[in-house]
Design a protein around this nucleic acid. Structure first.
Lengths: 334, 334
DNA sequence: CTGAAAGCGCTTACAG
DNA sequence: CTGAAAGCGCTTACAG
C-alpha cells in the first residue's frame, strides 16, 4: 500500500507538498517539484485513500441512492433506469455512489450518517417520514415523484395529473366512455392518486363517470384482467399506472380469449423500451427517465456546492405516445 | 455530531469501553456499564463513523459491484435483477454496497482501492483484463458469466452450452431444422459463443447445419427480423441470447406481417418476468437470477471471512421453459 | 474488566 | 513556495 508519506520520502519533500500536487493545487508548488512528484505518483500506482480523506476533510464524495423495498426496487425497470442514469451523472462529477435498500425509516439516517454521505436521492415513496428524514439529515436530499404536503422539499417529479388527463383524452377521442383504472395502491400512493384524478376528472368533464368499482388495486387483485372482463357494465378501455402492469393486464385478457385492442383498449405509463415490444405495441404516457435522473443529479450537486439553496420542486412534462393498443370505436359507428 | 468521546464523557468511562459495547464485545465490559452506555447511545442517536472505523481497522465493510457500459449496464433487466439480489444479500450481512460503472480497466483498481473495498462482484465481460485485475487487487473478486482461460478465477456462471443445446433440442423436437441465431457480438463474447456452440453442435448432430450467414450480431445488424425473413434458404426457428432480443426480433417480424410462432418460432434466454408478457408468451432458457446473486454473495463472503480459499468455478443449471413461441411443424405433416 | 497510548492516511490551519 | 503540528473518529495492541 503506497501512502502519501512513501511518495514524500521518495521525492524528498513533505507530505503536504505531495498532498497539494494530488489535489491539483499546482499554484502552490514549484513546477519542478510538481513534475517530480507526479512522476513518482504515476510509477508507484498511488491511489488516494478516500476513507482517510473523508475523515480529515469531512467530505466523503459519496452520494447515496435510497431504494425502497416496495415500489423502488431495482426489479422495477423504471427504478433501474433511474439508478442507471444517476450512476453516470454522479461518477461524471467524481463522486461515488452507494446504494441502500431500506424499509425501516431508522435505517435511512444511520446509513447516510455512517458514511457521511454528501447527498441522497430517494426512489420510491417516503411521504410519511419525509419530515423526520429531513430533520435528521442536514445534507441535500432529493426526492422523486413525491407528493408530500411539506413545503420545503426538493422534489423531481412529473405531471402525473396531466398523464391521467392525456390517457382519458385519448380514450375519449377514440370513442371510449366506459373505462377502468389499474394501479398499485391507489388509496395510499399520492402519485397514483394524481394519475387517477387526472384520468377521472377528464372523463367526468366529458360526461363519462369512472365508478369506484372500476378502480383496481393491483396489490389486492392480481388478476385485474379477469375482474374487468366480469364487470356487469362492460368496460372498453383500461388505464394502467405502469407499462409493466399494462402488459400484465393485456396478457391476462388475451389469455381469456379477448383481442387487444379490439375488445379492450389499454394505455400504460412510463414508456419503457419494452413497451414497444408488447403486442399490440403499447400506447403509453411517456416520461423521460434519463433526463429525470440528470435533473435530480444537477439539483443535488447545485445544493451540495452551495448550501442554503432554496428547496425546489421540479415538475417535468409528460406526453402521450400513441402506438397500437387503443382501438378507435368511432370507426365502427361510421 | 455525536462521537465515541462524547458518549464516554457522558458515561464517565473511557472511549475504549464505549467502543467495546458498540462492537458487541460484551464479555469484556461489566454489565452495569454496558447497560448505562447502551442507554446513552440510544438517547444520543449515535451512529458509528464508518469512515473512521474503516481507516483504523483496515476493513471497510464495503462491497463493490462493477458494472460495464456495454453488457453490464442497469438498462439490461438481467443486470438489474442481479444487482437487486446482490444488494439484499450484502446488506443482510451488514455490509455496504458501492456501485461503479467502469469502462476503462484502470478505473477498476483505483475505485476498489480508494475505498478499500473488501470484495467485488463483476457484471459483464472483463475477460481480457482479468489477469491484471486479479494481480492488482488482492481482495476476493467474483466474476459472473466469465469464460476466461485463467485457472484461478472465481466465477459464478451458468451452463451456457447446455442452454444452446436445449434450445436446439426443442426446435428439433418440433420439427425445425432450418434455424438462425441472434445475439450480441457472437464473435467476441465467449459466453455467447458457448450458447451458439451448444446450439450449433446439437443441430449438427441431428443433421441440421447452421450456416454462418444465419448467425446474426445484433450490434452490427439492428434489424435481424428483416434479415432473417430475406434469407434465400427459409428459416423457421430463431434462437436468441436474451429475452429482450427475442422480443425485439418478434416485434420486427410481426411488423413485417409474419405470424409468431406460425411463421417463425423463437426461443429466448434468461426467463425474465417480462418474457411471459410477450405475445405469444416466450419459450426461453431459464436461469435463476436471484439464486445466482445469492451464490455469488455467499462465495464472496466465504472468501472474505477465510482468505486463501481456493478459487471456485460455479456452473448453475439451466432448463427450458416452454411457453408458446415454438410452433410444432410435425403437426402439419401428420 | 478497564484505560492510556499510538496510529490508520489524509487535510486544515498556521507559521515561515 | 514549503513544512511541522494537530486532528478527523475510530481500533489495535498492550498494560494493568
Amino acid at each position: 500500500l503506497v501512502t502519501l508519506k512513501d511518495i514524500a520520502e521518495k521525492a524528498g519533500v513533505s507530505v503536504m507538498t505531495v498532498s497539494r500536487v494530488i489535489n491539483g493545487h499546482y499554484s502552490k508548488v514549484s513546477k519542478e517539484k510538481t513534475e517530480a512528484i507526479q512522476k513518482i505518483i504515476r510509477e508507484s500506482g498511488y491511489v488516494v485513500n478516500s476513507t482517510a480523506r473523508s475523515l480529515s476533510s469531512k467530505s466523503s464524495s459519496i452520494i447515496a441512492v435510497l431504494l425502497q423495498g416496495k415500489d423502488g426496487s431495482l426489479q422495477d425497470p423504471y427504478s433501474a433506469a433511474m439508478v442507471n442514469g444517476i450512476i453516470k451523472n454522479v461518477q461524471a462529477r467524481g463522486y461515488y455512489l452507494m446504494i441502500h435498500d431500506v424499509d425501516k425509516y431508522e435505517e435511512i439516517t444511520s446509513r447516510l450518517r455512517s458514511w457521511n454521505a454528501e447527498g441522497a436521492i430517494f426512489l420510491g415513496t417516503y411521504d410519511k417520514n419525509m419530515k423526520k428524514i429531513q430533520e435528521d439529515n442536514q445534507i441535500p436530499l432529493i426526492f422523486t415523484d413525491s407528493y408530500s404536503s411539506l413545503r420545503q422539499v426538493t422534489n423531481v417529479g412529473i405531471d402525473d395529473y396531466k398523464g391521467g388527463m392525456l390517457a382519458a383524452k385519448c380514450f375519449l377521442e377514440h370513442g371510449h366512455t366506459s373505462c377502468a383504472f389499474v394501479g398499485y395502491t391507489p388509496d395510499t400512493s399520492l402519485l397514483v392518486q394524481q394519475r387517477l384524478e387526472g384520468f377521472r376528472d377528464t372523463l367526468r368533464q366529458a360526461g363519462a363517470e369512472l365508478p369506484d368499482e372500476h378502480i383496481i388495486d393491483l396489490n389486492k387483485d392480481p388478476t385485474p384482467g379477469k375482474t374487468i372482463s366480469s364487470f356487469s357494465e362492460p368496460v372498453t378501455a383500461i388505464f394502467t399506472t405502469a407499462d409493466i402492469a399494462a402488459m400484465q393486464v393485456m396478457t391476462q385478457l388475451k389469455d381469456l380469449g379477448y383481442q387487444i385492442p379490439r375488445d379492450y383498449s389499454i394505455i400504460g405509463f412510463d414508456d419503457l423500451s419494452i413497451s414497444s415490444y408488447a403486442s399490440p405495441k403499447l400506447t403509453t404516457i411517456h416520461q423521460d427517465i434519463a433526463q429525470k435522473a440528470k435533473i435530480a443529479c444537477d439539483i443535488l450537486f447545485k445544493h451540495i456546492n452551495s448550501p442554503n439553496m432554496p428547496a425546489e420542486n421540479i415538475c417535468m412534462d409528460v406526453c402521450l405516445c400513441e402506438r397500437q393498443s387503443v382501438y378507435d370505436l368511432r370507426k365502427e359507428k361510421e
